[in-house]
Amino acid sequence: MTINWIGLWTMVRRELQRLMRVPIQAVVAPLISALLFIFIFGFVVGGRIRNFGHYSYLEFVLPGVVMMNIVSAAFLQATSQIYFQRFQKSIEEILVAPLSYVEMIAGSISIVVIRSVLTAVGIMLIGWAFGAVHMHSFPEFLFWVTFVSMIFGFLGIIVALWAKTFEQLNILMVFFIQPLSMVGGVFNTIEMLPPWLRWLAYGNPLFYFINGLRHSMIGFTEGPAMFGAAFTVMLAAVLGTIVWRLYAVGWGLRE
């Protein structure tokens, strides 16, 4: 079976055009929020906190801020893309086209990854202006950005297929993703937590994502790196399979 590359590219092209209609929401807002995080937590507060090995607090915090924004950009992109298409019924344009379910999903996930990469690059530029950007391993960095975007893209698609109202789109973000990001080691090491709370960090998937990205940028790690990477690939594969199955049965897509 040949791949419908033109169809895939059209999905990406179309969504990019949609994003260009909302540049403040899609591009400017995450950058401003990242700038504030970097300034307050990294620069103002960080000035009073001791260094982590060879790195300043700002350099320690930056990968966490990048990861928080990747997670948020990926999830919001996937939910808004699919939910709005369902809401407007323009998803039917995709359903009647000769695109396989894998192609439909790949088209949606590609734009999720593109938006996440653009967000990461934007925040890195801000970090660079503060002299806080390091790159320990670029392939590793790409791995984390891509796989974490895919994971939250898949989660976003599942939520968008399930949601019946705009309100429901935010439930996972507000009650799970944001709190888990905050306690996943963005601003602190696991060592800083009381011993009885450390198990919570190791049980938090966001910890592995933040820790992995931090290692790719400054070479600092607090967890088993290979386990984190294997867990991430497995989670992406499981969620991808679930989304493929939902597309195949038409859950939330077809009447």
Binding site: W5, G7, W9, T10, Q17, E93, P98
Partner: peptide, 14 residues
């Protein structure tokens, strides 16, 4: 124009 063009794209038209 985009609405018509996108559909052509989904159908794999060059």
């Amino acid at each position: 124009r985009n609405i018509v063009d996108w559909m052509g794209g989904y159908f794999g038209m060059h």
